[in-house]
Nucleic acid binder design. Structure first.
Length: 292
DNA sequence: GACTAGGATACGC
DNA sequence: GCGTATCCTAGTC
């Protein structure tokens, strides 16, 4: 919102995932800007929308050009990060970025994901049997009526997804083929999020070992919950068992998934020769029998 | 308490 | 039948 005392970045809350690396990027891009208090719900957790108030930072009129460039940089970073997050979510949930195309199952996955990411109360039942098209046709008021607790937030997030999908389509219709990402939309200049080994595009149900490998191939996103100890030997460690289990549950639409069940599935791989415990057995450490 | 191991059974594809 | 998901008991760290 330009022309206002402060710059409100409606997409900011999409960025604060479990790590806050984007904050570093933002502060790098503009030393004059800080991330101050949220405007929408100041008392809430950090996953809310902050306000960047340039006036309070004491910027003089002579700095307008610099401010302009800084704001553009920030906006560019914001858009990039939002798109990256959405693409990651799409990969993880195996849904398209455009909410219009979602079926009822996709809608429930998205709800679970958003609730999980922003620690919202469960509202899946309030939106049961709704397709993405239904959801997109709903007003903020209707969202609020269905879920007084988090309907507004969900509507805001859906709005971001809709905008992102429109933006992606627009860029794809004007951009060249090389810039198309794995989901069929573009993000020029960025590496593809997932390798060729990504199974989520094949249309086949993903196997747990594939899912784990995909997480391991994205250390930037998931390094805090699962990481290689020795990639050459295929040895990896689950750093946050509950988080990995939640991700797997989201991916398979199994809200009741936990590490107990996930680890049982991993152990089924012992007999099949897909995963085993390393020679020196350690807690939460496993080894792919055939390393990537 | 969290993790490991593995048997048994259920379920969807 | 396959690949889990779920539940369970028992043992280890």
């Amino acid at each position: 919102e330009r022309g206002m005392p402060g710059l409100y970045l409606s997409c900011f809350d999409m960025l604060l995932t479990e790590d806050a690396t984007w904050l570093v990027k933002v502060s790098d891009a503009s030393q004059t800007l800080t991330v101050p208090t949220p405007r929408m719900a100041p008392q809430e957790e950090p996953e809310q929308c902050p306000v960047i108030d340039s006036q309070e930072q004491g910027l003089s009129p002579g700095m307008e050009g610099q401010e302009e460039r800084s704001l553009e940089q920030v906006q560019s970073l914001v858009v990039g990060e939002v798109l990256k997050d959405i693409e990651t979510a799409c990969k993880l949930l195996n849904i398209t970025p455009d909410p219009i195309e979602w079926n009822t199952g996709n809608v429930q996955k998205w709800l679970l994901w958003t609730e999980h990411l922003y620690r919202l109360p469960h509202a899946g039942k309030a939106f049961q049997d709704l397709t993405g098209k239904d959801l997109c046709a709903m007003s903020e008021e209707e969202f609020h009526q269905r879920s007084p607790q988090c309907g507004d937030t969900l509507h805001a997030h859906l709005d971001i997804w809709k905008s992102a999908a429109a933006w992606m389509k627009e860029r794809c219709s004007t951009g060249d083929e090389k810039t198309h990402g794995t989901l069929g939309f573009c993000r020029p200049g960025e590496e593809e999020l997932w390798s060729e080994a990504d199974s989520s595009c094949s249309g086949q149900p993903i196997h747990l070992w594939q899912f784990l490998r995909e997480l391991l191939l994205k250390p930037h996103n998931y390094g805090r919950c699962i990481r290689w100890l020795n990639k050459d030997k295929g040895i990896f460690k689950i750093e946050d068992s509950a988080h990995v289990a939640r991700l797997w549950g989201l991916r398979k639409n199994r809200p009741a998934m936990n590490y107990d069940k996930l680890s049982r599935s991993i152990r089924q791989y012992y007999k099949k020769g897909i995963i085993r415990k390393p020679d020196v057995s350690q807690r939460l450490v496993y080894q792919f029998v055939h390393p990537v």
